[in-house]
Design a protein around this nucleic acid. Structure first.
Length: 821
RNA sequence: GCAGGCAUGGCGGAAUUGGCAGACGCGCACGGUUCAGGUCCGUGUGAAAGCAAUUUCAUGGAGGUUCGAAUCCUCUUGCCUGCACCA
C-alpha cells in the first residue's frame, strides 16, 4: 500500500502530457470542433485563486469534450501591455519588457503546475511585436475605413496614471484602475467610431441566448438607446435655430422654458453685450470649481440662470424663456432641452425653484391627482390635453402624431440617441502598441505602410511618469519620413488603449504563428466562434463590448465570417475569504502556490469545482479543502485495493441480483456527470454524484461473492469520469489499473439505459397532499394497474379509514395522492 | 430613480418538467481502531413535542392558483450588481 504522493504524481503527468504534446490541435473537418476559451490574464507575476477557478472550469469542459470526441481548441496567452509594467520601470528602473517576460515565465510555470490542458503552441503575448504588428495593421484598416479619427475634445484625465481614459474606464467619476478622481482636459486624441455600431451591438444581443441576462442588460444599459425626436426652436432676435432632443414629443405643448448646457456653443453669443453677460460668467465660474463627480451627482441642487433670451415654440408660437442650468449636460443629445415641468421630475423641481409656469398636457385620469395643481411631475401614461388638435390621444399615439406633424412642417424629425460615446483609444504611455500613424506638415496624418510594420517600441526612452508619452523622448523613434511624400515627418507618440489588444486575441489564437497575415481566414472560419467563453463579470461591459465591436468591424471588412465572437458566456463568481474578495490590503489572500504545495493541484481544483456552482461567489474554506483532499485519498485507497483483486480489463460482466444496486448507481452516476457537465456546467453536483458512487463501491466491495468483472468496470469508469476534474491522480490510477494507454486519449464512458430502471421503485402515498407512507412497487406499471395496486393495499385502506374518497391522483412510478373529504 | 440578480439547516450547497425539502460535502456528537493524538471505519445530525411508533412546524414575509408549490402568479422585505440630473 502506497500513499497518495500528489507531488510526484502531478510532476510525472505534467511532464508526460508536455512531452507527448497531447493538447496540440489542428483543423480537422472530420470532427466537430469546440473552442473553449478563458479570458487571458495580465501577467502580474503570480496566479491568484480567481485564475485557478477560471482555468479549472475551462479545463473540465475542454477535457470532457476531448474525451467525447470533439476537436477541442483550448489556448492561453498574455494580456501583457499595461500600466503595472511601466510603473515598475519608473520605480525600479527595470525595463518593462524584461519585467513582463519574467512574469510571464513565472505564471506559465504556475499554470502548468495546475495541469490545465492548453495548446501552448498557440500562446500569444500582446506585447510581442509579432502580435502587435497585426494590432497596428488592424488600426490602419480602421483608419482607412473611416472608423479611426482624431478629434480635439475635453477628455477624461487621470492625474495619477497621467493618461487619458475611455468613458468606460471612469467608474463613479474615478479612474477604474487606481481610484483617483478623474478630471477633464482638452486634448487631440484618436477615437474609434463604435457609435456607428451602437444599433447592431444592441440588436445582436438578442442573438445571444447563451449569455447571462445580467451581462446583456448591462450592455443594453451602457449603449443606452433612447427613441424620441429632434425639434427646432427659433430664438427671438438670433439667426440660428436651437435643436433639442426629447423622448417625449407628446408633451411639446407643455414647454414653458428651455435649458442649454452651460458649455453650449450658443451661450456666449446669446449673452454677448447684454446685461446678462455677467450673471452667466459668474455661473460658469462656479461650475468650473466643481469636480466632475460633484457636478454630475444626482443629489446636486438644480441651479441655473435666465440668459435674457426667448425661444418660440414651433407648435403653438409661444414665447418661452431660455436658461442655462447645471442639470443639462453638453455631451448628451444636443446639449439643450425643452423643459416640460408638468411631466418631468427634474424640470418640475427647477420650475418650482424659479417660479416658472407649469402647464399640464397629459391628464392622468386619476381621482387623486389634480392636473391643475400638481404636487409632483406626472410622468406616467395618460391622455393628452391642452394640445390643440392632439387632445384625447394617448401618450403613445401622441408621440407618433407629433413626430408626423413636425416632420411635415419641417421643424423636426424622429431621432434616436445613444449614451454610448466613441471610444477614446490614445494613451500617453509607453507600454502599449504604438499607433502606426505619421504626421507630415504637407500631407497631414498618414498611416505607416504595411511593409514597414511593426512600428517597434523604442528602447531609448525616459520614464518620467509625467503626462506625456515617454515615446516623445526617443529622437530616433519620433523622426521619420512621410510614407506619402517622403518629406520629414513625426510619429504619433501615443500608444493604444490595451483593451484593443484583447479585442481580437481570440481570432489570432486560430492561427497564432502566421507571419504573413493577421491569420488565415480559413482557420478562423473553422474555429470561430468561441463556443464557450469564461471569465469574470467585471468584463461585462468593457472587454466584451469592445470584442463584439471588433468582430463586427472585421466581419464587415471581410476578415471574419461570424458577427458575434462568443456563443456562450459563463461569468464565474469571485473567490471570497471571510465574506470579502481576497486582497492584499485586507490580508485575506490564500495563494494557489501554498495550496498546491500542501495538497496538490488536484485538491485545489476539486475544492473549487465542488464547493459552489461556477456563477456564484465561492467562499474559501480551509476545512473544505481538507475535505476535498480526504476524498481524493479515499479514491486512491479504493482503487489501489481494488486494482489488486479485480478481473482483467475487458472481462465480460454478468449482473446478478445482488449486483443490481451498484450497477444502477454506476450507470446513473455516468448519466448525471455527463449531463451536469454538458448541459449545465454544474460541476458541484457532478462531483457529488461521483462521491456517491465511491460510497457505494466502498459498501459493495465488502459484500460476499462480489462481482470482480463488475468492480473492474466500475473502477475504470469511475477514474474516467473523475478525470476532467482531477486529471493527475486519475492518470496515475488508470495506470495502476493496468492500462497501457494514457487516460487523456480515452473515450468517455457511456451508460446503459436499461440499468437506469430499477425492478422495484419506491413510491409515495399522500393523503390530501401530505406524505403518509412509502412503499415499493414493481416498475413499469401502467397508470391503471398502478392505481389498482396501490388502492388495493391494506396499508392504503388503513390510511383512508372511514372517510369518503373524493379523487385519486396517480403519477406512475412516483406517487399516489388520495383526496378525502 | 431605472435595469438585472439573489434569499433553502450551524456553514457551502442539492432538489433538472409543479410530485418524498435538505443529496453531497464541511462542522458537530457518539462509538470502534490506537499507549495517545491524528488518520481511518461506523452511527447520528432542520426545529419543536414524545420513552416510542408518531405528530406538528419549516425554503425572507403576506396572499393566490393547484389534488400537490422552494419551484407558477400578485404584492412585499432585505441584500448584491450595473447605470444614473441621459432630456
Amino acid at each position: 500500500m502506497s500513499n497518495y504522493d500528489f507531488k510526484a504524481i502531478e510532476e510525472k503527468w505534467q511532464k508526460y502530457w508536455e512531452e507527448k504534446d497531447l493538447f496540440h490541435c489542428g483543423e480537422d473537418a472530420s470532427k466537430e470542433k469546440y473552442y473553449v476559451l478563458e479570458m487571458f490574464p495580465y501577467p502580474s507575476g503570480k496566479l491568484h485563486m480567481g485564475h485557478v477557478r477560471n482555468y479549472s472550469i475551462g479545463d473540465v469542459i475542454a477535457r470532457f469534450l476531448k474525451m467525447n470526441g470533439y476537436n477541442v481548441l483550448h489556448p492561453m496567452g498574455w494580456d501583457s501591455f499595461g500600466l503595472p509594467a511601466e510603473n515598475a520601470a519608473i520605480k525600479h528602473k527595470a525595463a518593462p519588457d524584461k519585467w513582463t517576460r519574467d512574469n510571464i515565465r513565472e505564471m506559465r510555470q504556475q499554470l502548468k503546475m495546475l495541469g490545465i490542458s492548453y495548446d501552448w503552441d498557440r500562446e500569444v503575448a500582446t506585447c510581442d511585436p509579432r502580435y502587435y504588428k497585426w494590432m497596428q495593421w488592424i488600426f490602419i484598416q480602421f483608419y482607412k475605413h473611416g472608423l479611426a479619427y482624431k478629434k480635439k475634445n475635453p477628455v477624461n484625465w487621470c492625474p495619477s496614471c497621467q493618461t487619458v481614459l475611455a468613458n468606460e474606464q471612469v467608474v463613479d467619476g474615478a479612474c477604474e484602475r487606481c481610484g483617483t478622481p478623474v478630471g477633464k482636459k482638452e486634448l487631440e486624441q484618436w477615437y474609434f467610431k463604435i457609435t456607428d455600431y451602437a444599433d447592431r451591438l444592441l440588436a445582436d444581443l438578442e442573438k445571444l441566448p447563451g449569455w447571462p441576462e445580467k451581462v446583456k442588460s448591462m450592455q443594453r444599459n451602457w449603449i443606452g438607446k433612447s427613441m424620441g425626436a429632434e425639434v427646432e426652436f427659433t430664438i427671438e432676435g438670433f439667426d440660428k435655430n436651437l435643436t433639442i432632443f426629447t423622448t417625449r414629443p407628446d408633451t411639446l405643448f407643455g414647454v414653458t422654458y428651455m435649458v442649454l448646457a452651460p458649455e453650449h456653443p450658443y451661450v456666449k453669443d446669446l449673452v454677448a453685450g447684454t446685461s446678462y453677460e455677467k450673471d452667466v460668467a459668474d455661473f460658469l465660474d462656479r461650475l468650473q470649481y466643481m469636480s466632475e463627480i460633484e457636478r454630475t451627482a444626482t443629489t446636486l441642487e438644480k441651479e441655473g440662470v435666465f440668459i435674457g433670451r426667448y425661444a418660440i415654440n414651433p407648435v403653438n408660437g409661444k414665447k418661452v424663456p431660455i436658461y442655462i442650468a447645471n442639470y443639462v449636460l453638453m455631451d448628451y443629445g444636443t446639449g439643450a432641452i425643452m423643459a416640460v415641468p408638468a411631466h418631468d421630475t427634474r424640470d418640475f423641481d427647477f420650475a418650482k425653484k424659479y417660479h416658472i409656469d407649469i402647464i399640464p398636457v397629459i391628464d392622468p385620469k386619476k381621482d387623486d391627482i389634480d392636473v391643475n395643481d400638481l404636487k409632483a411631475a406626472f410622468i406616467e401614461d395618460g391622455v393628452m390635453i391642452n394640445s390643440g388638435p392632439f387632445d384625447g390621444l394617448t401618450v403613445e399615439e401622441g408621440k407618433a402624431a407629433i413626430i408626423k406633424m413636425i416632420e411635415e412642417k419641417g421643424i423636426g424629425k424622429a431621432s434616436v440617441n445613444y449614451r454610448l460615446r466613441d471610444w477614446l483609444i490614445s494613451r500617453q504611455r509607453y507600454w502599449g502598441t504604438p499607433i502606426p500613424m505619421v504626421y507630415c506638415e504637407k500631407c497631414g496624418w498618414v498611416p505607416v505602410e504595411e511593409k514597414d510594420l511593426p512600428v517597434l517600441l523604442p528602447e531609448d526612452v525616459e520614464f518620467t511618469g509625467k503626462g506625456e508619452s515617454p515615446l516623445k523622448s526617443s529622437e530616433s523613434f519620433m523622426h521619420t519620413t512621410c510614407p506619402k511624400c517622403g518629406g520629414p515627418a513625426v510619429r504619433e507618440s501615443d500608444t493604444m488603449d490595451t483593451f484593443l489588444d484583447s479585442s481580437w486575441y481570440f481570432l489570432r489564437y486560430c492561427d497564432a504563428r502566421n507571419t504573413q497575415k493577421i491569420y488565415d481566414k480559413e482557420k478562423t472560419d473553422y474555429w470561430m466562434p468561441v463556443d464557450q467563453y469564461i471569465g469574470g463579470v467585471e468584463h461585462a461591459i468593457l472587454h466584451l463590448l469592445y470584442s463584439r465591436f471588433f468582430t463586427k468591424v472585421l466581419h464587415d471588412l471581410g476578415l471574419c465570417s461570424v458577427e458575434e465572437p462568443f456563443t456562450n458566456l459563463l461569468t464565474q463568481g469571485m473567490v471570497l475569504k471571510d465574506g470579502s474578495k481576497m486582497s492584499k490590503s485586507k490580508g485575506n489572500v490564500v495563494s494557489p502556490e501554498e495550496i498546491i504545495a500542501k495538497y496538490g493541484a488536484d485538491t485545489a481544483r476539486l475544492f473549487i469545482l465542488f464547493t459552489a456552482p461556477p456563477e456564484r461567489d465561492l467562499e474559501w474554506s480551509d476545512t473544505g479543502v481538507e475535505g476535498s483532499y480526504r476524498f481524493l485519498n479515499r479514491v486512491w485507497r479504493l482503487i489501489q485495493e481494488l486494482s489488486e483483486v479485480i478481473a482483467p480489463s475487458g472481462s465480460p460482466v454478468q449482473i446478478r441480483e445482488e449486483d443490481k444496486e451498484l450497477n444502477y448507481v454506476l450507470n446513473t452516476t455516468i448519466k448525471r456527470v455527463t449531463d451536469d457537465i454538458r448541459e449545465r456546467f454544474n460541476f458541484n453536483t457532478a462531483v457529488s454524484a461521483i462521491m456517491e458512487l465511491v460510497n457505494e463501491m466502498y459498501r459493495y466491495k465488502e459484500t460476499e461473492g462480489r462481482n470482480l468483472p463488475l468492480l473492474r468496470k466500475a473502477s475504470d469508469e469511475l477514474v474516467m469520469i473523475l478525470s476532467p476534474f482531477v486529471p493527475h491522480i486519475c492518470e496515475e490510477l488508470w495506470q495502476m489499473l493496468g492500462h497501457e494507454e494514457d487516460l487523456t486519449g480515452q473515450k468517455w464512458p457511456s451508460y446503459d439505459e436499461k440499468a437506469l430502471v430499477k425492478d422495484e421503485i419506491e413510491v409515495v402515498i399522500q393523503i390530501n397532499g401530505k406524505v403518509k407512507d412509502k412503499m415499493n412497487v414493481p416498475s413499469g406499471l401502467s397508470k391503471d394497474d398502478f392505481e389498482k395496486l396501490v388502492m388495493g393495499l391494506p396499508r392504503t385502506k388503513e390510511l383512508i379509514g372511514e372517510k369518503p374518497v373524493a379523487k385519486v391522483i396517480c403519477v406512475p412510478g412516483k406517487l399516489v395522492n388520495i383526496v378525502v373529504k
